[in-house]
Measured scan of single mutants.
Amino acid sequence: HHHHHGSGALAALHAEGPLAGLPVTRSDARVLIFNEWEERKKSDPWLRLDMSDKAIFRRYPHLR
Rank of each mutant, 00 (worst) to 15 (best):
H1I: 12
H1L: 13
H1N: 09
H1C: 15
H1S: 11
H1P: 11
H1D: 11
H1E: 11
H1W: 05
H2N: 10
H2V: 13
H2L: 13
H2K: 10
H2E: 10
H3K: 09
H3S: 09
H3D: 09
H3I: 12
H3Y: 11
H3R: 09
H4W: 12
H4Q: 10
H4D: 09
H4F: 09
H4T: 09
H4S: 10
H5I: 14
H5W: 13
H5R: 13
H5N: 12
H5Q: 14
H5G: 10
H5S: 11
G6C: 14
G6W: 14
G6D: 12
G6K: 14
G6M: 15
G6P: 12
G6R: 14
G6Q: 12
G6F: 13
S7I: 13
S7D: 13
S7F: 12
S7A: 12
G8C: 12
G8L: 09
G8E: 10
G8K: 10
G8A: 10
G8Y: 07
G8H: 11
A9F: 13
A9Y: 10
A9N: 13
A9G: 14
A9P: 10
A9E: 13
L10S: 15
A11W: 02
A11F: 04
A11N: 03
A11G: 07
A11I: 10
A12P: 03
A12M: 14
A12Q: 14
A12W: 09
A12L: 14
A12F: 09
L13P: 03
L13M: 07
L13D: 02
L13I: 13
L13A: 04
L13G: 03
L13K: 06
L13H: 03
H14E: 04
H14P: 03
H14A: 03
H14G: 02
H14Q: 03
H14L: 04
H14K: 02
H14W: 12
A15V: 12
A15D: 13
A15H: 10
A15P: 13
A15T: 14
A15R: 10
E16G: 08
E16H: 10
E16A: 11
E16R: 06
E16I: 08
G17V: 02
G17C: 05
G17A: 03
G17L: 03
G17D: 03
G17M: 02
P18H: 06
P18K: 07
P18W: 05
P18L: 06
P18S: 07
P18I: 07
P18F: 05
P18C: 05
P18N: 07
L19A: 04
L19K: 04
L19C: 08
L19S: 07
A20Y: 08
A20P: 02
A20C: 09
G21S: 05
G21F: 04
G21V: 03
G21D: 04
G21Y: 03
G21T: 03
L22F: 05
L22K: 06
L22C: 06
L22Y: 06
L22T: 03
L22I: 02
L22N: 03
L22W: 04
P23T: 00
P23V: 01
P23A: 01
P23W: 00
P23E: 00
P23S: 00
P23R: 00
V24Y: 03
V24P: 02
V24E: 05
V24W: 03
V24C: 10
V24D: 01
T25Y: 04
T25L: 05
T25W: 04
T25G: 07
T25C: 08
T25A: 08
R26L: 15
R26P: 11
R26E: 07
R26M: 15
R26K: 15
S27K: 12
S27A: 15
S27I: 11
S27W: 14
S27G: 12
S27P: 05
S27Y: 15
S27L: 15
S27C: 13
D28N: 01
D28K: 01
D28S: 05
D28P: 01
A29T: 00
A29L: 00
R30S: 04
R30H: 05
R30Q: 07
R30T: 04
R30F: 05
R30C: 12
R30A: 08
R30N: 04
V31P: 01
V31Y: 08
V31A: 09
V31Q: 12
V31D: 05
V31L: 13
V31G: 04
V31K: 12
V31W: 11
L32W: 02
L32K: 03
L32M: 07
L32A: 05
L32Y: 04
L32T: 04
L32Q: 05
I33A: 03
I33R: 00
I33D: 01
I33H: 01
I33K: 01
F34C: 07
F34D: 01
F34G: 02
F34P: 00
F34I: 07
F34E: 04
F34V: 06
F34A: 05
N35D: 07
N35F: 15
N35G: 07
N35T: 11
N35E: 10
E36H: 05
E36P: 00
E36W: 05
E36Q: 06
E36I: 04
E36C: 05
E36N: 04
W37F: 08
W37P: 00
W37T: 01
W37Q: 02
W37L: 02
W37A: 02
W37R: 01
E38H: 15
E38R: 15
E38T: 13
E38A: 14
E38D: 07
E38P: 02
E39L: 09
E39G: 06
E39K: 09
E39R: 09
E39W: 06
E39F: 07
E39N: 08
R40H: 10
R40L: 13
R40D: 07
R40I: 06
R40F: 07
R40E: 08
R40K: 15
R40P: 01
K41T: 08
K41M: 08
K41L: 08
K41Q: 09
K41E: 04
K41A: 10
K42A: 09
K42G: 09
K42P: 06
K42L: 10
K42Q: 11
S43R: 10
S43C: 13
S43T: 14
S43D: 13
S43I: 12
S43H: 12
S43N: 14
S43Y: 14
S43Q: 13
D44I: 05
D44Y: 10
D44K: 07
D44F: 10
D44E: 12
P45W: 05
P45I: 06
P45V: 06
P45H: 07
P45M: 07
P45S: 07
W46T: 15
W46N: 15
W46G: 14
W46A: 14
W46V: 09
L47S: 10
L47T: 11
L47H: 12
R48D: 08
R48M: 10
R48Y: 07
R48P: 13
R48H: 12
R48S: 08
L49K: 01
L49Y: 06
D50H: 04
D50L: 04
D50E: 07
D50Y: 04
D50G: 01
D50I: 04
D50S: 04
M51W: 09
M51R: 03
M51C: 11
M51H: 03
M51P: 02
S52F: 01
S52D: 04
S52G: 05
S52V: 02
S52M: 02
S52I: 01
D53S: 06
D53E: 09
D53T: 08
D53Q: 06
D53F: 07
K54I: 10
K54A: 13
K54L: 10
K54F: 08
K54S: 12
A55G: 05
A55R: 04
A55L: 09
A55Y: 12
A55H: 11
A55F: 11
A55V: 11
A55Q: 08
A55T: 08
A55P: 04
I56T: 01
I56Q: 00
I56E: 00
I56P: 00
F57Q: 07
F57A: 10
F57T: 11
F57K: 07
F57G: 09
F57H: 11
F57P: 01
R58I: 13
R58N: 15
R58M: 13
R58S: 14
R58W: 08
R58C: 11
R58L: 13
R58V: 13
R59H: 06
R59V: 08
R59N: 06
R59M: 08
Y60V: 00
Y60L: 00
Y60T: 00
Y60Q: 00
Y60R: 00
Y60F: 14
P61T: 02
P61D: 02
P61G: 02
P61K: 03
P61V: 02
P61H: 02
P61W: 05
P61N: 02
P61I: 02
H62M: 01
H62L: 01
H62F: 02
H62E: 01
H62W: 02
H62Y: 09
H62K: 00
H62N: 01
H62T: 01
L63I: 04
L63D: 00
L63K: 00
L63V: 01
R64C: 09
R64H: 07
R64I: 13
R64E: 11
R64K: 13
R64Q: 12
